[in-house]
């Protein structure tokens, strides 16, 4: 499932022959603001797109973006339809058995519950989550009844229209939605630390590419550009490196 949506390919400036010829295809979902989404112009945009382009520039790689449904994002990576995943994917043990991750470019995340009122029963009520995410796994193990939707948008809609008592998702995905709701939606309960930060997913056989991107991420962490980007997309409260 290779698909569309080329966003600007980053031009490789170097003549590092072998690598410059090859295009590194970067897979993302395009439905998870502010990490990655499709902007008004119909192009991929977001924190990970900006970060990925910068990483490719530092690593002197020629990169091209591809969007893919979340459900099949890992099978398509391992069958070589693209070479990396940057889609707000938390580093977990199960995923790590199948693919490799770079070091995290986004600090370990907290997930949070959002509901329509303070006294919503998020512990034993109905909780919506996106299918096949670590959040869905967490809710399935809790006392609450899990209600699964195919995309993150629908999980929030489920709370709005009363299908679910609360939605459980990544804090930084929920925050802009709560801010924009004008008091309709609110965070309830304490945030839950889940997952080991967000990293770039790669095939296990692609050690060389993993090292390259690891170095690029390290250099961005060292000179503070990664922190600037995090603040730009997620606001001042975001954890920094």
């Amino acid at each position: 499932m290779k698909s569309i949506l080329a966003s600007a390919a980053v031009l490789a400036l170097s003549a590092s022959a072998a690598l410059a010829q090859d295009v590194i295809r970067m897979g993302t979902e395009g439905a998870y603001p502010p990490y990655n989404f499709i902007n008004d112009a119909g192009e991929l945009d977001g924190f990970e797109i900006e970060l990925g382009n910068e990483l490719c520039e530092r690593a002197e790689l020629n990169c091209e973006w591809v969007s893919n449904e979340w459900d099949s994002i890992i099978p398509n990576l391992v069958s070589s339809n693209y070479d990396t995943i940057m889609a707000g994917m938390s580093i977990t043990d199960e995923r790590d058995e199948v693919i490799d991750f770079t070091q995290d470019y986004y600090p370990p995340t907290e997930s949070a519950y959002v509901a329509l009122s303070e006294d919503a029963d998020f512990e034993a009520g109905v909780v919506a989550a996106q299918a096949a995410t670590i959040q869905a796994g967490h809710v399935a193990e809790s006392e609450a009844a899990l209600l699964e939707y195919a995309n993150p948008e629908e999980t929030v809609a489920a709370v709005r229209n009363g299908e679910a008592d609360a939605v459980f998702a990544d804090y930084d995905f929920l925050k802009p939605i709560v801010d924009a709701s004008g008091g309709e939606l609110m965070f309830v309960g304490d945030p839950v630390p889940l997952g080991g930060g967000i990293g770039m997913g790669l095939r296990e056989s692609d050690d060389e590419l993993q090292t390259t991107f690891d170095e690029a991420i390290t250099s961005m962490k060292e000179d503070g550009t990664l922190n600037e980007m995090l603040v730009k997309w997620f606001g001042d409260e975001i954890g920094q490196y």
């Binding site: 099978p75 391992v78 109905v126 299918a131 009844a145 699964e148 629908e154």
Partner: peptide, 24 residues
């Protein structure tokens, strides 16, 4: 229609396993 408490039809479980094993 959303699946509740992971009670779904055959395709729901098939895609659950496809997702967990990463092997369709």
């Amino acid at each position: 229609f959303p699946a509740r408490q992971q009670k779904g039809d055959a395709l729901y479980y098939a895609s659950y396993f496809a997702d967990k094993t990463f092997n369709p």
